[in-house]
Design a protein around this nucleic acid. Structure first.
Lengths: 343, 343
DNA sequence: GCCAGTTTCGCAAGCGCTTGCAGTAGACGT
DNA sequence: ACGTCTACTGCAAGCGCTTGCGAAACTGGC
């Protein structure tokens, strides 16, 4: 039904090879001929057959995007941003969600991308060396978001600095008992390796720098959900000497923490301060103080790295510096404010 | 680099046609031969070339998913659910985000999907007749989520019933001045046509049934964001005779409304009740009473409809009945509770 | 042990595009 | 006016797989 090069050639009174070259702006075709061909194509409503083109060239002009979980804001945002630059550049985006260990295993077991994409954008997954090799073995250029591997481009966040900054913010406000609400892998999750571990390190560093002791009781690690964050917050509150502030490794955990605190009648930030991590789409809605790590930018830069790699550029390795966004869930601890008032 | 049918054929000592048939479970191959071929393929790590197969068959085993905005929870959730059933069925998922009117126009102007997918899953976009025709003209089977068109499968939500149920819930609690916080298209948005209009209708119906007057001043229509919801809520509060409850056409608007209310010191649900619409991932976090309309199920069913259409089934047209999820943002109006106390 | 009827396979012609190489036609110099 | 270059364009051989059709092998029945 759709016209082929042949029909365009016929109409433009040239050979198919000329059509092919004219339409792809390949030199060696006179301007006049090129124009004639383009017009013929236009009139016929010609559209190239991707399959045929791919078969002949061996390249697909498609990049696969693999994520552990599509419905999480972070991943969706990264994909959206990456997708825009990719499709802008004329690439198709193939979506791959690896939401269970089984899917992950199956995906890396065979050459599942062979002939489907030229490159892969891997978000958040911590690839094992052989997994990376499996991808590259299929001739895929690979770019990583949220991890770093030899031989692949990557975009990472300075999470340690981020964790430290979040914690410092609370220290500067006068808090001295600050908890950390971290992320632990859920059972069925395919992430494999927890990148935000650096956030915890940053937190610890900040405490040490401030001359405060590390207290294991103030560190939790739970599944990255609102409910888990809420539960963990409850646990902190039952401590003998509860913290007065918490830095959460994600905004979702922070949401949960805030919910718990307000639920038991505590005021945030009056009685307790919370800082999140992500600058989630809805962070503003609850006025959450949080670390912004340019989620969309991560996607954008990874996509650009891929485009670069596809045109022969060497692997690049970018870093993003998170920055604190102060909103309404952080304030000096009550003790200090009382003191200030009595001044 | 990767092996081809030819090499498999050679190793299994059969012809390429036999390999092709054996690997695809096409009858006419003896069990013994089939096994031999499969083993040979296995040993060689053979993977079919999609391009070649597509070129030869004309089918791509790919379905395109088009959404207006990927990073919104609703869309991401629908895609995730649909993607799971599609990839389970062996289909690739091609992602298309039409986030601006320009992109939308360009997309429908040419045969952009020709040879790229066998079917399209259109989420939320209200297709103009010629847009639908453009897709079908490219030989695409099409399934719609959130709209309905002659000649295409679709999955829709009984939004009118949903709007009515949400409103009734508030009426039953004793509210008499209930506002509606609706969705209006943003300027640069490609949605084109507002499906949730039915939610407003349901709201009005419920009021009429309860013998209450419709008050235009109690109906707002804003962009579907937390901030816009917050602003609209502020407007409601400045009314001469403010409402005591609001039904929002989305959870995001509801989040904004709640934020405004609590921001000015009003208690929710003590002083004001709010019911949302979506049962957003984070609705639980703020304990939002809302209408659940099975978002994942919409994706799943649409994907199933597509698979059906691809195997020759006639267009189907499913409906989903939303249900109320009562959480913590709705309660009787203060007036009534006082009365109850004095009892 | 021979023939008709089944199975099981292989041949070869595409599918629609790309590209190395060869051929043709102007352009230019002398 | 003729040879030499350069600039265009066409030929044809793939790319790796599918599939209609005919050939070969095998099954029984007699």
């Amino acid at each position: 039904m759709p016209p082929t090069v042949e029909q365009v050639a016929e109409r433009a009174k040239v050979s198919v090879s000329t059509v092919s070259r004219a339409l792809r702006d390949i030199p060696g075709i006179s301007a006049a001929t090129r124009k004639r061909v383009q017009e013929a194509a236009e009139e016929l409503g010609y559209a190239i057959s991707p399959s045929a083109s791919r078969l002949a060239t061996g390249r697909t002009r498609t990049v696969a995007v693999v994520v552990p979980l599509l419905a999480k804001w972070f991943f969706a945002e990264v994909i959206a941003a990456a997708g825009r630059v990719l499709s802008q550049a004329g690439y198709d985006v193939l979506l791959v969600e690896l939401s269970t260990p089984e899917l992950r295993e199956a995906f890396f077991a065979g050459p599942r991308l062979h002939g489907r994409s030229d490159a892969v954008l891997v978000v958040a997954l911590q690839l094992a060396p052989d997994e990376l090799a499996a991808l590259q073995g299929q001739g895929q250029a690979v770019a990583l978001v949220g991890s770093e591997r030899e031989g692949a481009s990557s975009v990472r966040v300075e999470d340690r600095a981020g964790g430290r900054a979040a914690t410092r913010h609370l220290l500067n406000l006068g808090h001295e008992r600050i908890a950390f609400l971290g992320i632990r892998e859920a059972e069925g999750s395919p992430l494999g390796g927890v990148p935000p571990a650096e956030r915890l390190q940053g937190y610890r560093e900040a405490l040490v720098e401030a001359g405060l002791p590390e207290e294991p009781a103030l560190e939790a690690a739970v599944e990255n959900t609102v409910d888990a964050g809420a539960a963990a917050m409850s646990a902190f509150l039952t401590a003998a000497e509860p913290p007065t502030a918490v830095v959460a490794a994600s905004d979702e955990l922070a949401f949960g923490a805030v919910a718990t605190l307000r639920g038991v009648g505590l005021s945030v930030p009056g009685d307790f301060s919370v800082v999140g991590y992500d600058n989630h789409e809805l962070a503003g809605a609850v006025s959450l103080t949080t670390m912004d790590h340019g989620v969309a930018e991560q996607g954008r830069r990874a996509a650009e790295a891929i485009l670069g790699a596809l045109s022969g550029a060497p692997a690049s390795s970018g870093r993003i510096e998170p920055r604190l966004v102060v909103r309404g869930t952080t304030a000096p601890p009550r003790r200090l404010r009382r003191a200030a008032q009595t001044n």
